[in-house]
Nucleic acid binder design. Structure first.
Lengths: 198, 198
DNA sequence: GCGTTCTCCTAACAGTGTTAGTTAGCCGCT
DNA sequence: AGCGGCTAACTAACACTGTTAGGAGAACGC
């Protein structure tokens, strides 16, 4: 229903009507509309895959980020709600826990693990919000001339392909940067403890 | 007013009352509430700085991303609205144009420029949404034991410091990755045109 | 003085999430 | 069989929301 009519298209009365019931009856099962959305959000996140860390932290992050993004892309209208309260939901916490574990096992110090988990989420949520969630401009001719550098670029934007490509570019660039950092961090950590093992 | 009471705390009647007027009078100046928010959003984005590209694409992106994030952090409650319609607002388009120009001048092909601009926005918007916009959990003891890897990490989350550090980590890792890519892209481009200059 | 214009007003519409209080039916127990 | 209690649905209402239609009063130029 949200997928069809948008987040505002779902009202308690409409949902109740869809179920052949009046609005007040829903409150026997749900305390509040927010709880309903939270439950929906948790369902959406159930498909996210954090199992990739067995094959190393990099593939772990990659698999997580991609499946996370896909889960959001499957229900674009729910993204604004999903994005604004990341903690608190059990599924989200399970994933955060798994990611944190996978990263520390790979040698990342806990603080880095926290930051990397957050950073990756930034990328996914940002991509979800600004791509398929919000619509891009439809009246194209307006900009031509006014924004010289955009005159062709914006034509591409908003299309599924460049959205995904942008996300993939961001992800690999980010992971490339992390790989360099990982070498440094692991080296300096072993310097401190083992005075130069390998 | 939004900063104080949240996005839902602003209603036309309340705003009017604050101005010593009744709600209907506002519609002599504004067509709709959405227009009001759009104007506010544009004001917030006015402080974003895209002038750094004179010192190279990397500093350009850095300055842009940081000032962008700070502009959003200054009005956290407006972020959900700001995030869900990135195109269409004049300020946002001006910035996109400046960024695109700065990147192409630095040798990035137009398609890459578009993707990099989008990617950076992902990072900023994602950081804004999941950090200061949404609140983290407050009842901490609940998780301890249930999510073994998080038991200490989550204590840090939601605090300003780690939010900014995570963002900075993401940004530098992303830019490091881009630097490598830039070398590749520029080389392969000159291979094609000049058969090996520089 | 008159007409125009501008600003604000009241009243209302259609909709929202949510709560109180009530009724109908079913289940198990005596 | 009849009664108590539970469940799930109901109606009605409250306090809101964004928004529009139509009217009242003041200020302006002619």
């Amino acid at each position: 229903m949200i997928d069809r009519d948008g987040l505002d298209g779902l009202s308690m009365r409409r949902l109740a009507a869809d179920l052949g019931v009046r609005a007040a009856s829903l409150y026997g099962y749900l305390a509040t509309k927010d709880e309903l959305l939270t439950d929906l959000a948790d369902d959406v996140l159930a498909g996210v895959d954090t199992s990739g860390f067995d094959a190393g932290w990099r593939t772990g992050l990659t698999v997580w980020a991609r499946s996370y993004r896909e889960a959001l892309a499957a229900h674009p209208n729910l993204v604004p709600f999903l994005a604004h309260s990341p903690g608190r939901r059990p599924q989200a916490l399970m994933h955060a826990d798994a990611v944190h574990g996978g990263l520390t096992r790979a040698g990342w110090p806990p603080r880095y693990a926290t930051m990397i988990g957050a950073s990756t989420k930034y990328l996914v949520v940002g991509a979800a919000m600004t791509s398929f969630s919000g619509g891009f401009a439809d009246d194209v001719e307006v900009y031509v001339g006014r924004y010289p550098n955009l005159s062709q670029a914006h034509l591409l934007a908003g299309h599924e392909e460049i959205d995904r490509d942008s996300f993939e570019l961001a992800l690999t660039a980010f992971l490339d940067g992390l790989s360099r950092l990982h070498a440094q961090v692991v080296r300096s950590a072993s310097d401190q403890t083992g005075k130069g093992s390998s």
